[in-house]
Structure formats: structure tokens, C-alpha cells
């Protein structure tokens, strides 16, 4: 910190302290409201739909889409199907997709099965390198897992880590999200509460550099409030939920 910055720091804090300790209370209502206790749930509880259904319905309402793979070994097939649908590529030509490391996707034999189906995974290790960056930026599909998914809004939360690039959910036009059933929570608050109780919340937020909540495809309504998709991030977001609990 420069000298000027330090001086400003002291001046600002001194000024705030003197205002707050003055005779005049800062707010008209001198009784301070209690800081609400978590969980602070925004949504009324919904028992009509299962978590998976709610997640899917809510994501679909926001221009995303979703499907359920009942068995883990179906996942790779469905991924390959989606990739072929988005990027028609002729017979026996391999399509490269930007991806998290297979070990981070929690689907057994994913990479091998995909290879048999002509899809190869590019897992970048350093996007600061120009060649890696150019290659990643040229790919049209990104595959990621999730830290958690939320039924009430159709959201997912991603936490970067080695083998889990931010770019995979950001650069390609299509984002394929692999969601293990065990990671779907009813609401943000359930997940937060659980992490808090386990004493892991602070570390998770701090250590991942940037955690990102994502709810459907990138969109804008800046032009006369007309909805347009894929402004900067993915235009197509598809979730494959699979049962990892068996």
C-alpha cells in the first residue's frame, strides 16, 4: 500500500468511526434490527415435485434443458449424442471438446467411452499460454461437473480447482453440465447451512479463487428488454443428471 493509500485509509476509518459514535444515531429507528439467522430462505417449500424434477423444470423455464440418465454408464453416450447434435461432424471424425479433467466429473470410464464415440476431451492446464488459450477458445462445447445444484432455481455452483477450469463453462457456445444426483439441494440455503455446519464454507469460498453460481444460458435484455441468449457466455446450457447413489 502506498503512503497516500495508508493516509486515506486512516482518514476514512476515522471519519466513519466519529460519525457512528456521535450523539446522532445513524438511522431514524434507533433500535437495530437483528442480523437474520441463516438459513434465510427466499422460497416457500415445495413438496409437489422431487428435487430432480424441480431442478429440471426450473432450468428449462430459463431456456436451459435437462435430461435424466438413470445409470451412470449411460452418461457418456448421452454426452456424445448431444455433441453430435450440436456439432454435426460426419462419420468417424473426432470432435474435441473443452472439459474438466475426467477425475473431476465423477463418471466411471467417461473418457474411454467418449473416445469410442469419437469425442475427445481437451483439459487445459494453463490458459495464460497463448496456444492453449487459442485452442480452448476455438472449441464449441464445454463439459463441467458441479459443486452443487439447486432445485428451486435450476442453478449450479462451480468451484475452480486443478483440473476444473473456469473457461469450460465460459468460452464455448454450448455448456454441458454433468450433475450427480447426490449434489442436488432444494435451495442455496440448504447447501450453505450444511457447509457452515461442517465448518467448510469459509475455506471453500476462499480457496477456490472464484466460485460461480450459474443459472441457465448467458442472456441480455439490453435491447428494448428483448431476451437474447449467448451474449458472452454459453448460449446453450444442457444438464445431464445421473444417479451416483447406487
Amino acid at each position: 500500500m502506498t503512503e497516500r493509500s495508508t493516509a486515506s485509509r486512516d482518514r476514512i476509518l476515522r471519519r466513519l468511526r466519529s460519525s457512528l459514535s456521535g450523539s446522532q444515531p445513524p438511522f431514524r429507528d434507533s433500535v437495530e434490527p437483528d442480523l437474520p439467522d441463516p438459513p434465510m430462505t427466499v422460497y416457500p417449500p415445495s413438496e409437489r415435485l422431487s428435487l430432480v424434477e424441480s431442478f429440471g423444470v426450473n432450468l428449462s423455464e430459463l431456456s436451459g434443458s435437462f435430461e435424466l440418465a438413470h445409470r451412470e454408464r449411460d452418461v457418456a453416450e448421452r454426452v456424445a449424442q448431444k455433441v453430435a447434435e450440436w456439432i454435426p461432424n460426419g462419420e468417424h471424425k473426432t470432435t474435441e471438446v473443452l472439459s474438466w479433467a475426467p477425475s473431476e466429473l465423477h463418471v466411471a470410464r467417461l473418457e474411454q467411452t467418449l473416445a469410442e464415440l469419437d469425442v475427445s476431451l481437451f483439459v487445459p492446464d494453463d490458459l495464460a499460454e497463448l496456444q492453449v488459450r487459442d485452442r480452448a477458445a476455438s472449441l464449441e462445447v464445454g463439459i463441467t461437473g458441479v459443486e452443487a445444484a439447486f432445485a428451486s432455481t435450476g442453478s449450479v455452483v462451480l468451484t475452480p480447482a486443478p483440473g476444473r477450469s473456469r473457461a469450460a463453462a465460459l468460452l464455448p457456445l454450448h455448456h454441458l453440465i454433468l450433475v450427480p444426483l447426490s449434489r442436488i439441494y432444494a435451495e442455496f440455503e440448504d447447501w450453505l447451512q450444511r457447509l457452515r455446519q461442517q465448518g467448510r464454507l469459509e475455506a471453500l469460498v476462499r480457496e477456490s479463487g472464484q466460485i460461480a453460481f450459474i443459472t441457465g444460458p448467458s442472456k441480455s435484455a439490453d435491447i428494448e428488454l428483448n431476451l437474447t441468449l449467448g451474449v458472452h457466455g454459453p448460449k446453450v446450457v444442457h444438464a445431464i443428471v445421473f444417479d451416483d447413489t447406487q
Binding site: 427466499v42 430459463l62 428451486s152 432455481t153 442453478s155 469460498v205 476462499r206 480457496e207 477456490s208 479463487g209 472464484q210 466460485i211 460461480a212 453460481f213 450459474i214 443459472t215 441457465g216 444460458p217 448467458s218 442472456k219 457466455g233
Partner: peptide
């Protein structure tokens, strides 16, 4: 209900 993205950056 929520915006599409909510990014929480905690460092480099």
C-alpha cells in the same frame, strides 16, 4: 429469481 451469473472472487 436469480441472475444468470453470480461470481464470488476471493483472490488471484
Amino acid at each position: 429469481d436469480v441472475t444468470v451469473y453470480f461470481s464470488m472472487s476471493s483472490g488471484p
